[in-house]
Design a protein around this nucleic acid. Structure first.
Length: 489
DNA sequence: ATGTAC
């Protein structure tokens, strides 16, 4: 049963990949909506509340220019997943729903100097070893790495550099993370004890759902020059991709502050079309507290991916009996795709400080931007887009066009097409495993149910999503990756 | 996404 709510949302076609929802579509909209998609992806958005939610977001106090839905957009909590909302820094809204429950869910990519044929004899052993050392699945905990409340406070305040100091990484890793792996605005005093308790035993765990760890091969190089700068120089080269977030810690921070924001909505008399958009003006205590707590969760996800990276490097060392540096295993980049930050953008011709919410959206800053790591400054930031299980993933590069039309942002992945429950009814985990096996892909999963929920055909085609980004020019294609082994929650 | 619940 589909509600087809989106059919009632008026759309004006601007070009083949851009559609405007006019301000007149719904009373109370402060700006138009802007949907970046091709005809096919747009049709998919009409089967759920995506377009309605895009319109709802346009009601946020202080929202600027337009409410953006990206090609992978689908229905989420209040805001669509695959969306960008920018508000005025002084009195514009900051909203937990615009970030999502999995704060700083994100992706990092490691390159190796191995070719697929060199890794194949050891692939099964390597996958097993990683699967054993990185706990995955719902509620998974790390037995060999637990921290006290005091240590957790230090970790979430200091982020990746702290983990590196503890011997779980290389000094250069931090430079290849968004925010250098640490939001300086993190303040653990604003995080509840419940969140900390949940977080103590989950640093270095993968989680469940669409999270995964893959050993991949380079399938195709589109932009040879930029690929080389990112450390990708040949088809068949082996890479490792880690996709996960802030686990129970971030989830609890989101829940805690959604409640705070519901109070703020009443206190400041904010009128919204959906209570799931709960927010506070940026210059209030509530917004500041959320930002400081969310910054801790952002750092939590960064260190989570850093500790997992360490486990991957250790697994390579053990399986091949050589130091991991021998294989490269360099960090290309670590991107966040569920995050709110303070940035500067040009709006109506003038430069201003704003709150930016990227929910299921990847930053795509161009060459020359000071926030792009020095190693990539002349080319643009690496944009890493994970596919669904068994499908391709992509590396793109940020552009000036993204700064002009999407506040320096692009899509974040395939985006669901079928609900989890529908996928469970339609597919069997073991069948999915066999299908992947026939394609030569090794699968290790904590639960067969998750395999069914995450079946590739429950998702949109990531290649199409990436194609729209490339055609629009809001991040252009660099290299296509395909899985050799996949570890799932 | 998440110790499937105020």
């Amino acid at each position: 049963m589909q509600r087809n709510q989106g059919n009632r949302v008026p759309l004006e076609k601007i070009d083949d990949y851009s559609w405007r929802i006019p301000m007149e579509a719904k009373p109370g909209m402060r700006v138009p909506g802007m949907v970046f998609a091709d005809e096919t992806l747009l049709q998919k958005m009409k089967t759920d509340r995506t377009l309605t939610q895009c319109m709802n977001v346009a009601h946020l106090p202080g929202i600027l220019k337009y409410s953006i839905t990206l090609p992978d957009g689908h229905e989420g909590y209040g805001f669509p997943i695959g969306g960008v909302a920018v508000t005025d820094f002084e009195d514009g809204a900051l909203s937990p729903g615009g970030v999502g429950y999995d704060i700083n869910c994100g992706v990092r990519l490691l390159t190796t100097n191995l070719n697929e044929n060199q890794i194949k004899p050891k692939l099964s052993d390597l996958t097993d070893r990683i699967f054993r050392s990185v706990p995955c699945g719902l509620g998974s905990r790390r037995k060999d790495f637990r921290v006290s409340d005091r240590e957790l406070d230090i970790l979430v305040r200091e982020g990746v550099p702290r983990i590196v100091e503890q011997g779980m990484g290389r000094v250069e890793d931090a430079d290849h993370c968004e925010e250098q792996g640490c939001m300086k605005t993190a303040n653990p005093e604003k995080v509840s004890q419940t969140a900390k308790k949940r977080g103590r035993s989950q640093v270095g765990t993968l989680g469940s759902g669409n999270h995964f760890l893959e050993i991949q091969r380079v399938d195709r190089i589109v932009d040879v020059k930029v690929a080389k700068v990112f450390g990708i120089d040949r088809v068949g080269q082996v890479t490792v991709m880690i996709h996960c977030g802030s686990r129970g810690f971030g989830h609890q921070v989101c829940s805690d502050y959604l409640r705070v924001m519901e109070g703020a909505v009443r206190r400041y008399g904010i009128s919204l079309p959906d209570r799931e958009l709960a927010c506070a003006p940026g210059n209030t205590r509530e917004a500041e507290d959320y930002f400081q707590a969310m910054s801790c969760a952002i750092n939590y996800a960064f260190i989570n991916r850093q500790v997992i990276t360490h486990s991957v490097r250790e697994s390579f060392r053990q399986v091949f009996n050589q130091p991991s540096e021998e294989f490269g295993l360099d960090l290309v980049y670590d991107v966040a795709h569920n995050i709110a930050k303070i940035e500067e953008h040009v709006v109506s011709g003038s430069r201003r400080k704003v709150w930016i919410h990227r929910k299921g959206a990847t930053r795509a800053f161009p060459r020359g931007h000071p926030d792009v790591p020095v190693d990539y400054r002349d080319y643009g930031q690496p944009v890493i887009i994970p596919g669904s299980m068994g499908s391709n993933s992509w590396v793109l590069v940020g552009t000036e066009k993204a700064m002009e039309v999407s506040f320096g942002s692009t899509a974040h992945g395939a985006g669901r097409m079928m609900s989890r429950s529908a996928a469970r009814r339609r597919f069997r985990g073991n069948e999915i495993r066999k299908t992947l096996g026939r394609r030569g892909i090794i699968v290790r999963a904590a639960s067969p149910i998750v395999l069914a929920e995450e079946a590739d055909s429950a998702y949109k085609d990531v290649n199409k999503v990436v194609e729209v980004s490339d055609r629009l020019g809001i991040a252009t294609r660099v290299a296509k990756l395909s899985p050799m082994a996949v570890i799932k929650g």
